[in-house]
Nucleic acid binder design. Sequence first.
DNA 1: TATGAATGAGACTTCATTCAT
DNA 2: AATGAATGAAGTCTCATTCAT
Lengths: 208, 208, 208, 208
Amino acid sequence: MPKISEAQRETRRQQILDAALVCFSRDGFHNTTTADIVRESGVSQGTLYLYFATKDDIVVAFADDRRQREMFLDAVAQSEQDPIQGLLALIELHGMSLRDAKRLDGRRVGVQAWAEALRNPRIHASVVEGLATVRATIERLIERAQAAGQIRPEVDPEGVSRTLVAVFHGMVLQVAWGEPLDLSACGPVIRGMIDGLLTAKGRQSIPA
Amino acid sequence: MPKISEAQRETRRQQILDAALVCFSRDGFHNTTTADIVRESGVSQGTLYLYFATKDDIVVAFADDRRQREMFLDAVAQSEQDPIQGLLALIELHGMSLRDAKRLDGRRVGVQAWAEALRNPRIHASVVEGLATVRATIERLIERAQAAGQIRPEVDPEGVSRTLVAVFHGMVLQVAWGEPLDLSACGPVIRGMIDGLLTAKGRQSIPA
Amino acid sequence: MPKISEAQRETRRQQILDAALVCFSRDGFHNTTTADIVRESGVSQGTLYLYFATKDDIVVAFADDRRQREMFLDAVAQSEQDPIQGLLALIELHGMSLRDAKRLDGRRVGVQAWAEALRNPRIHASVVEGLATVRATIERLIERAQAAGQIRPEVDPEGVSRTLVAVFHGMVLQVAWGEPLDLSACGPVIRGMIDGLLTAKGRQSIPA
Amino acid sequence: MPKISEAQRETRRQQILDAALVCFSRDGFHNTTTADIVRESGVSQGTLYLYFATKDDIVVAFADDRRQREMFLDAVAQSEQDPIQGLLALIELHGMSLRDAKRLDGRRVGVQAWAEALRNPRIHASVVEGLATVRATIERLIERAQAAGQIRPEVDPEGVSRTLVAVFHGMVLQVAWGEPLDLSACGPVIRGMIDGLLTAKGRQSIPA
DNA sequence: TATGAATGAGACTTCATTCAT
DNA sequence: AATGAATGAAGTCTCATTCAT
């Protein structure tokens, strides 16, 4: 029987992850030492390894955590009655996320995870699955809209999903770099992209 | 007083950079040792330091090299008589670059540089300047198109440039990750985005 | 005040020692962690330290355990009426012990204890005392045989005891290493060594 | 082209091994840190790893070194005209080696290698091969003596070789433990063992 | 008594950089 | 200029031991 409850264990784990997030954001994965995380989190070296088998596992934990948020996005987008509204909601949610200063550290670590994904198979898997999840969400919305006659039938759902995800990623990069990204200026451009896919009927479902 | 000619020196330098590119692409910046580069390049450990003061300088050299390509893009885009054609040419050039398998290593290293830019001031400066260069190119084209009545006056050039650059970056990510990105499916979506900016007159300048 | 009986305590202690024997035999003293012993024994980390003050004490416990077996050997050997028969019985007992596959773990741990004895004073003391015990047994037999005119008076009991013990130790080594030691081939050689010590009268006491 | 000569490299390597021998003899393999060897040898941590890939390789180097000495023993033993003389020479050489105080560290490390051989495959291989070498030497002498009618034909060469090697090993143990081993007292016992193998003709070849 | 989570000192190894040749 | 052996600081991870529950 465990001496500490599952909740206590999870709290401790999160305490370490929170500290690691600060360190990773500030110094990068590779320039963060386990000693840094220990200092920032207040747990001991030994305890760190009671919760994560290797330093690498801490990095992977971040990549995996993000997956959950993407599941949530999907649920919100699909819950919209109108698929066009669902697409716009997705775009809106991404925008809100980008504006949220509290998530800056997470974004900075996320960008590093993108680079790590190039050579770390576990992170690659996590990133690619996340990409697939978001794309599936988008493609399902588009197919629903095509079935409803709101998006032109010749539109390729994959082309749209990949382009839209590219925009999302690219915006995260700019925000992570500290660029003064004016989302209210980009929004119309992105919505214009969606607009280009619509049939006359589709346009009617967008509120002025 | 140098005993070797400037040309010899440049050849040697490039030999090191070529080797480093292979290593960085394969293992990442941080998991590449100077010994790896030495092995791959055939120069000696000592010689490496005759050409680059630190390992970090090799990384920075890649970031700086990219700047030159961006200058070239600008020249091509601006040389088009019609600014709308210039925009489309820019998009086309990026697409061709993405399709070029020979540049895969460069793209993989580029993505790593994006992550490095978060904490390495020199790389950050280089990346941000590159971003500014491309954006300036796009914004100049848009402003010219607005002056010519081809793009609606209320369009915000910065919003467009940031969004377009975001798409470019996002596509690079997907290609770097090995995603089966079908550019011919994405092209129409991106061009649709441009199309949404145009006036009736602007549309006339696009060939069928 | 102990809340468990002495018998329960001894059972627990033995449970730990049995587990340690398996671990030590498999991985060696130094490559066995207390966690290994905990896993193998089923007791908890904390409990381990209720029975042994340090990991080292577990090692010492093995060395001490062996002493008891050596006492037993002495009793058997001395109980023989004829000292020559006693010597041969001693040799026979060692041979039987070596043939006993159940004692393999013990032998492997014993060999490690020999190495430990070089730098661990407690183990050194234990090993050296064990050596002295066996030698005393042998020397007493020889002296009795000399008094009875069975062994030549010029034979040095210490030379014999040291040589005989050396053979015993060396055989243990070979068996521990997994060598295919044919004891029935070695027996005659060792008995021949004893034979060389005997007087004509001594030889009469050996059965054909 | 290497910057240092093979001889210089070998000197350096030996310098490390000499230091390691002192440390291993004093503290044992497992209680010797690479820092200890560095301190004792005067080379730097980094240099240590220029000559030995791991700490374990240093240990293995000792085991391998011993093999060479055993080759030498073989050569000496076989060079004797009379195989009985060869056997006695072998015993004599071992005795002389045991008496040599300068080799005490080597013996102490050797005993540790015997224990290591139980779980380290490389050391096991080295030890077992050494054992086989010495045994082969002995068995060849015995077979030659049997062919010459000096040793009784029913004597099993393997039984003799294993027993004799066991005596050698056991004596090394006693000396390593610091026991006051009087070899001149043991010599007659061992020679008596050989004597027991001989035919009348064989006995003639031994000088008084 | 028994537990097992927590501790932190310390081990092995790597690697960017230097410098005598 | 070129070489490559040498350096030593620093990093990740382990593990014997403790102690609050």
